[in-house]
Design a protein around this nucleic acid. Structure first.
Length: 278
DNA sequence: ACGAGATCCTGTCAGC
DNA sequence: TGCTGACAGGATCTCG
């Protein structure tokens, strides 16, 4: 499930491989993957050149220019959700059962948008839609860039559990279930602690833990559980560093107490009852 | 208004 | 062996 570090890894791969490439064809193999103005999507993409690959939260952004059309510049956006993958394939590569959208490139290569569970979406985004697409408009700040002061303000008046806040993309962008649990463990904060109950020193610890976990995971090219792969089809390595995620019932690496599992907002949540007291 | 729960989807795995 | 149900969970929708 691509979260910020996985998306960052994918984007770095795409930037290397796709910078300057021109899209010639688009084929949606399964309905519902293309969101927003579908008509514009299929009309505007052929002939568009990919200028750069970027990331915002968990979104993959490919900035496009179309020298032939007189339309404004667009951004091709992907949200990979649970099981999406973006794979650069050679000319004669064939789609498999989970390939949902195929972007043919002028040089013959293909960009496959694969997604087993089909929760992922892609869409075009122009300046106007940046004001009207709620997910984009309401997306919170980047955790690797936010100042401590702004970070503190996200939690100061919020009564909700700190983990709910970390997972809320309108509060802070890019953190998912894995890195929320791992960050809270490193900061020694109970997932149910209300945001407003966190003191300044604990918020400082939390921001540092979030940044540290994300940076380490990016260094390891993300975590591969189930089917995550980057643009080259490679797996990440951070899953070997998990201290709590997926480890309920096993001993805490720090203190030896049995890690506890619970459900929060329908998500599996693992924490150490001794290291992360409420 | 806020928050909890259901929903979308498919593959995997445990248990009978 | 083969079936069934639980589970994985990001974002959105519905309901209390």
């Amino acid at each position: 499930m691509p979260e910020l570090p996985e998306v960052e890894t994918i984007v770095r791969g795409l930037e290397k491989k796709l910078g300057g490439a021109i899209i010639s064809t688009v084929r949606e193999l399964r309905d519902g993957m293309v969101e927003g103005d579908r008509e514009r999507f299929f009309a505007a993409l052929p002939g568009s050149q990919i200028r750069e690959a970027r990331r915002r939260g968990k979104l993959v952004l490919l900035s496009l220019v179309n020298p032939r059309a007189k339309t404004q510049d667009e951004t091709l956006v992907f949200h990979l959700r649970m099981s999406g993958a973006l794979l650069v394939r050679e000319k004669d590569a064939l789609p498999d059962a989970h390939t949902r959208v195929i972007f043919g490139l002028e040089d013959g290569r293909q960009l496959f948008f694969d997604d087993v569970r089909t929760f992922g979406i892609c869409r075009l985004l122009n300046e106007k839609e940046k004001e009207t697409w709620p997910f984009w408009k309401n997306l919170g700040p980047e955790p690797l860039e936010i100042s401590q002061k702004d970070f503190d303000a996200l939690f100061a008046r919020a009564k909700r559990p700190v983990k709910s806040l970390l997972l809320d993309q309108t509060v802070i962008a890019g953190i998912g279930n894995i890195y929320a649990d791992e960050s809270l463990f490193r900061a020694a904060i109970h997932p149910l602690s209300p945001g407003c109950a966190l003191t300044k020193p604990r918020l400082k610890k939390l921001r540092e833990a979030v940044k540290e976990v994300l940076a380490e995971a990016i260094e390891q090219c993300g975590s591969s559980i189930r089917n995550y792969r980057d643009a080259n089809g490679n797996a990440g390595a951070f899953q070997t560093r998990f201290r709590v995620y997926g480890r309920a019932g096993r001993p805490c690496a720090r203190c030896g107490a049995t890690l506890e599992g619970m459900r929060l907002n329908g998500r599996s949540t693992v924490f150490c009852p001794r290291c992360q007291p409420l």
